[in-house]
Nucleic acid binder design. Sequence first.
DNA 1: TAAGTACATACAAATATTCGCATATAACAA
DNA 2: TTGTTATATGCGAATATTTGTATGTACTTA
Lengths: 113, 113
Amino acid sequence: MPELSQFTAEFFKALSHPLRIRVLDALRQGEVGVNELSLRLQVEQTTLSQQLAVLRKSNIVVGRKEGQNVYYSIRDPEIIHLLDNARRIFNNHLIDIRDLLEQLSPGVEKSSP
Amino acid sequence: MPELSQFTAEFFKALSHPLRIRVLDALRQGEVGVNELSLRLQVEQTTLSQQLAVLRKSNIVVGRKEGQNVYYSIRDPEIIHLLDNARRIFNNHLIDIRDLLEQLSPGVEKSSP
DNA sequence: TAAGTACATACAAATATTCGCATATAACAA
DNA sequence: TTGTTATATGCGAATATTTGTATGTACTTA
């Protein structure tokens, strides 16, 4: 089934941008309006809206309009777990590297005076 | 910590290509040589090697050279779980859509005669 | 050594993504 | 109606990714 790999790849592609990741992190505790979001993340509103559009098209995020504001939230809390798992994976790998370096030259942990 | 979102995004970017996903699926049961892989996936060897290089650079996959062959495997089995979780997420979402359609026009499941 | 097999890489053209800027829309206020 | 605020979108330039073609390297066998 070649479509499945297509869908899977597109899903990950939606997560493959630093700002989009920062948005998701900001939405961990619940919905946030676009205005506050652009203040918190220190990005132009237009840039933010563009990346929100990407997340919306992939159904990772939903917007709820209230008055003149739009409040965004993560559609499925499993996405948070996915983020955390991804980080655990490459964290493990960094630990592996640290261990390797430790083996090569023991005791050279931090370069502080 | 803006670097973390960078790393996270790069990690996902490595997973954001259909062929790379198909490679990972092929490596689920264990290591596979490049030659067999290109036969199984029906892609040119050069295309495969290029995408393997991407997966290698992101430390998602490792190659083990034996004679003139290189056997690739997934570095961390957690990556398999990550794939499965991602699929579960957008599968849930597809189910949501099906339910929604069902609500709108009940009983119109399949368009068979 | 020469030739063949397995895999990797360099480069350029085609394609896709991102960013900044301008503009559009929608809700609200005066 | 006009103006203002909040958000979205269209477009072009800059940038990154993908793909095909050619070539490189390493191992093996004759």
